[in-house]
Amino acid sequence: MQVAIRHKAFRRKPVLGDIRFELRRSETTALLGPSGCGKTTLLRILAGLDTDFTGEVDHHNARLGFVFQEPRLLPWRSVYDNIALVAPDRREKIHQLLDEVGLREVAALEASRLSLGMARRVSLARALVVEPEVLILDEPFNSLDRARAAQLRLLLLDIIERHDLKVLLVTHDPHEAVQLAQRLFILGGHPTEIQQEIPLELSAGERRDVALIAQRVSQLFGD
């Protein structure tokens, strides 16, 4: 997947400037930027929901899986049905994914009864059931308490390593970016552009070492 956005305006105000990057196989790319810098706009463009921009996004018709900021589940449907919605007739796969995200026991529970953390995991399973070539994560740990967010990050690391995916993580939290990504793009400026590219070469073990991650974050970004 190649992204080359040159210009995007919203109500005549430029929001995005020059943003070019490529998603690579088995690699997580993180876009790190403050809230309100146009990350969601960028994702809408990648998803094909917004076509009013100058530039090119080449999906090669790739299947996309989304984990939105809000879980966006059908509250009147069960956990299982929510996943089956995007990939009907994939019983086995759904059960396998429910196992992976640790929700097998609540498969029949209505989504309106889930906690936010559980709903996020359902949303992740839903994104994976389509067997995406590109997995897009939009602030997937937003509004979770620290313990739950840390737990979900480890789960995501496991899943990303197991499934052969191109992952795009959009976040405002440097810890998340450093822990999960192999490449990090820092967004900033007006309009928003890529200001810096940082490669992150950490081993699978290092990524699970919270102290080490914190140390790398402070090396890269100061306090």
Partner: peptide, 21 residues
């Protein structure tokens, strides 16, 4: 609108979107 957008992202058919969403 978020749910409708979700339906579009996952390319659900019109019929399924209408019935399920």
């Amino acid at each position: 609108r978020d749910l409708l957008e979700m339906a579009r992202c996952y390319r659900l058919s019109r019929r399924v979107t209408l019935k399920e969403v």
